[in-house]
Design a protein around this nucleic acid. Sequence first.
DNA 1: CACCAGGCAAGTA
DNA 2: TACTTGCATGGT
Length: 213
Amino acid sequence: MKNKILNIYNRLYERFGPQGWWPADSAFEVAIGAILTQNTSWQNVEKAISNLKKKKALAFQKMYNMSRQELAGLIRPAGYYNIKAKRIKNLLEFLKRFYRGDIKKMLSRGLPVLRRELLSVNGIGPETADSILLYALKKPVFVVDAYTKRVLSRHKLAGHDADYDELQRLFMGHLPADTKLFNEYHALLVRLGKDFCKKAKAKCQECPVNDER
DNA sequence: CACCAGGCAAGTA
DNA sequence: TACTTGCATGGT
């Protein structure tokens, strides 16, 4: 097989179909969700998002005016709620300062600049930054996460010690810079991890990617 | 009961 | 630079 990376994508897509990420009503909601889901199950994040929606707090100004303590109370089900409240506040300050509180205003700027800016916010690391870039701003960046690392090392396409940038380059170097493709690919890897590599180890036998080897 | 989830930063050597 | 630890809820 000439392009294993693309081949894996095709298998995953055939097996699971389009995943329709990111489940959110706005770019702002994606950004908040990206922080909430740090090392946390999406199920718990949904509870936090639901609390925010009930309070109509999923809008920049409303959330900006809210105290850190009140925000922490609402996002409690997502875990790490104190530190995440701080991180969200940091992001809001950043948006206020450079984009007048409007995340959509980020669209006018270039990808490398945006990535550096997001990474400069305390609480936003590579995965969170790239999730915002890809899923909120629709920029062609590949998101790497724990599932991605596991799948690649399990199939011996990378060592278990490969770091974030290395894995990201591996994907982006073997794929066209296509937002839709990156969107589905990352979501499919997460889907694969949940369905096959987590619960029953036996199921890894029937893993759709685990064909030749 | 233990273990883990769509990470990140801060502290230590 | 390279480990280690804290952060925390809810599902299996």
